[in-house]
């Protein structure tokens, strides 16, 4: 049960945060490769989004909707990618920021973890007056909270 790494990609496909937590879980790659990985994943995600059909087309005649138009759920793209040694989960926020979590294949409740990471991002990055939108995340407080949270999971 281990979380290997967290990556955050902004809505333009740029890498704004990457951090590895567990030695030996993933091979080290250069920062440049991480940037390429982020950009590539962003592109693949965009294409897979176009593949998937829109769910819940609103039924205007049903009584339950009572005149309130329900918005169809936006098509979601690639969410999980699994290899022999790791599992990558993607969480795409409504504003298009992507959170990627690399874990080992037996890790449970990844969606809970990833939402908690998102929550920390919205607290310690978005509420920080010194953070510029879409730029790399350099917030000491975010680093600290994320590290202690992931450490807690990895030591469980």
């Amino acid at each position: 049960m281990t979380v290997f790494a967290v990556i955050i990609i902004n809505k333009a496909g740029g890498l704004i945060y990457n951090r590895t937590f567990h030695e030996g879980g993933l091979n080290k790659i250069s920062t440049n490769d991480y940037l390429v990985l982020a950009g590539t994943f962003h592109g693949v995600h965009a294409i897979t989004t176009r593949l998937s059909p829109v769910k819940n087309v609103p039924d205007r005649n049903s009584a339950s909707s009572a005149g309130i138009l329900t918005r169809p759920e936006p098509p979601s793209g690639l969410e999980v990618l699994e290899s022999e040694n790791f599992r990558m989960q993607c969480f795409n926020t409504l504003t298009g920021t992507k959170f990627l979590l690399f874990t080992d294949t037996t890790q449970a409740n990844v969606d809970v973890t990833i939402r908690r990471v998102y929550e920390m991002y919205s607290d310690y990055v978005m509420k920080n007056p010194f953070y510029q939108l879409e730029m790399p995340v350099r917030c000491e407080m975010f680093d600290r909270k994320l590290l202690s949270y992931i450490r807690e999971i990895n030591n469980r």
Binding site: K127, P129, F130, E140
Partner: peptide, 14 residues
């Protein structure tokens, strides 16, 4: 609570 001051402004306290 949610503020991290960048390193180049380390003497600042909001």
């Amino acid at each position: 609570a949610y503020i991290s001051v960048p390193r180049e402004m380390s003497s600042l306290n909001c």
